[in-house]
């Protein structure tokens, strides 16, 4: 990372740190969504369908594990969206002033990764008080991959939509994808739901939480999804920062 990218990333981090509403959201939303859900559910066992097998789990543990990717996806998506929306016009000017597109893209995605890690850390801090995953490392990895997937989607949505419709999309998309279609309480989800962005990361997450082994292809596919979106997002960012 050269000095110009470091400067740009550092300035971006300062902007991020000076957005108290967003920072508060990163703390409050995990507590609210994960914590309240855990408190509200009955302490009974529920049957979960994970990789085709049925596993019984405590409802509170299931709620914590289930709401973690939902929360991370929503928050990372909003971070990506705001990152894009708040800097796009100024980035154009900075590009004209002499910053190269590659430097801008690197700095912006670097900041997105930091934001996603923050969101993940905040959500895990709450979730791990209610659930002890069988395979913690894989659980953390799955959460990060979910965050990166939706964080980059937030950037993409931020390029093509204005702020208000963008926020709606980034609220509804994780709800529809992760909350509805990746729900392990559902025994027979439609085949096409496996093409949704959150599918492989949440499969990995549930296997890591409630079983003692994970399917490596889920991790590879989730990582592949992130890479694919990264290529798409990078292409879009290059295009939006293109100057003569």
């Amino acid at each position: 990372m050269n000095g110009r990218v470091r400067t740009l990333a550092a300035m971006g981090a300062r902007e991020f740190a000076r957005t108290p509403v967003l920072l508060a959201l990163l703390v409050v939303l995990p507590v609210y969504v994960i914590g309240v859900f855990v408190l509200l559910v009955d302490d009974t066992a529920v049957p979960l369908t994970i990789d085709g097998s049925v596993v019984n789990a405590e409802m509170s543990a299931f709620a914590a594990a289930f709401m973690t990717p939902v929360t991370v996806a929503i928050l990372a998506g909003i971070v990506g969206l705001f990152l894009m929306q708040s800097s796009q016009a100024a980035d154009d000017r900075l590009r004209l002033a002499g910053y190269r597109a590659g430097e801008l893209v690197t700095a912006r995605f670097g900041l997105l990764v930091v934001g996603t890690l923050l969101v993940t850390a905040a959500s895990l801090a709450v979730a791990l008080t209610a659930v002890t995953p069988e395979l913690l490392g894989w659980f953390v990895l799955a959460t990060v991959l979910t965050g990166l997937t939706y964080g980059i989607l937030g950037v993409v949505v931020g390029v093509v939509l204005d702020r208000l419709p963008g926020v709606y999309v980034m609220l509804f998309a994780p709800m529809v994808d992760v909350l509805m279609f990746q729900n392990p309480l559902a025994t027979d989800p439609p085949t096409w739901t496996s093409a949704l962005p959150g599918h492989y990361a949440t499969e990995l997450l549930f296997a890591a939480t409630f079983t003692t082994s994970v399917d490596g292809t889920d991790a590879v596919a989730a990582g592949g999804y992130v890479l694919l979106l990264l290529v798409l997002g990078t292409g879009l960012l290059y295009r939006t920062t293109a100057v003569e």
Binding site: M11, R14, E15, S86, A89, A90
Partner: peptide
């Protein structure tokens, strides 16, 4: 110098 200042608001 654009009509609308294209600057980073929080810097």
């Amino acid at each position: 110098c654009p009509q609308e200042p294209r600057l980073y608001d929080r810097l």
